Simulated scan of single mutants.
Amino acid sequence: MKDTPDILCIGSVLWDVIGRSGAHMRIGADVPGRITRIPGGVAMNIAMTLRRFGLTPALLTSVGRDAEGDELVAECARLGMITDHVYRSEDLPTDRYMAVEGANGLIAAIADAHSLEAAGGKILRPLEEGGLGRPGAPWRGPIAVDGNLTESLLAEIARSAAFATADLRAAPASPGKAERMLPLLDHPRATLYVNLEEAGLIVQGRFDSAQEAAAALAARGAHRVLVTNGGRAAAEDGAFGARTAAPPEVLVTRVTGAGDTFMAAHIAAEWRGESPDEALHTALRAAADYVSGDVPS
């Protein structure tokens, strides 16, 4: 494995506990299914997809010095990620995410990323103290950031000299954390990846299409934004022009991690030199393959 990362993934790295059933489910449903525990979190999901496309990511996150944390860090390293810069807390437990999915999609989810939030700026020290950057010589490559970071830390990132030359890519992590993206909305080097609901929450509006939402975010000052809308057309607007594309039609077998897969595949496509139109199609295909179950968790 390479010692030098191609990209930094900053945000949640935790254990995903996911219950899936082939039945349509409503609130209060009690049905048979399967429960799995796999490495997850937005930063982790992005890193795993980047690995599938041949990039080497480094993780900047908080993981507890508990048994679950030791197991998680070991699994990240086995998957080909650089874990040397992970902040290991003595007193904070390893974070977890729990979701229930049915044939009709995501039923409910809870993200327990309190340790990441409590660690705060400690996870960024490698960018400031020489591990990955230092004053006067900041990191110059791509950085993927997720909305499990607090709004105050995202605001710090938006104005920090440590990120001034980076190709910054950001996603909210969930609709409930969409408004945390506000400090990055008008960042001159940030690309935002959101779904239709998240776009509406960021600008306090309602949209009927991804194209309409992307245009509204660009009008509000977004340098570049990509908006997905499930199985409907996705859209891009901003610095590289406006475009839309429809995802392939597939049978949906899972949804958790689909947006992360889209974002990572798009980053990887542009890393390979694909045009904006090509990169959008590549990302939609990768996300479709993921939700159909053709890509392993």
Rank of each mutant, 00 (worst) to 15 (best):
A158N: 08
K177Q: 05
L154V: 12
A170K: 02
H187D: 12
L124I: 11
T150Q: 12
R189T: 15
G141I: 04
A161Y: 09
A103H: 05
A199N: 04
R206K: 12
A118N: 02
N229I: 08
R206T: 14
I143F: 05
T228P: 03
A210M: 09
N195P: 10
S174K: 03
N104P: 13
A214H: 01
A113F: 13
L124M: 05
A170D: 11
T191G: 03
I107V: 13
L154C: 12
L154P: 04
V203D: 01
E197K: 14
L168Y: 08
K122H: 14
S209T: 11
A109S: 15
A214F: 00
A162I: 05
V227R: 00
P172C: 05
M181R: 00
A218F: 04
Y193M: 11
V145C: 12
A137R: 13
A170P: 04
K177P: 12
L124R: 00
A119N: 01
A158Q: 04
R169P: 02
L153S: 02
P175W: 06
G130V: 09
R206V: 11
P172K: 00
Q211H: 07
A218P: 08
L185F: 06
L153C: 11
G105C: 14
A199D: 01
A119T: 15
N104S: 09
E101H: 14
F207V: 09
V227C: 02
A219W: 07
S115N: 10
L184V: 08
R140V: 05
L132R: 00
R189I: 01
Q211W: 01
K177N: 11
A215D: 07
E197H: 07
I157W: 04
S115D: 13
A213F: 05
E151W: 08
L124F: 07
S152F: 06
A164S: 15
A103D: 15
N104D: 15
G121W: 05
I107Q: 11
L185G: 03
G230A: 07
G130W: 09
V194K: 01
G147C: 14
S160V: 08
I123S: 00
A144L: 09
A118W: 11
L226Q: 00
L217M: 09
L217A: 03
A118C: 06
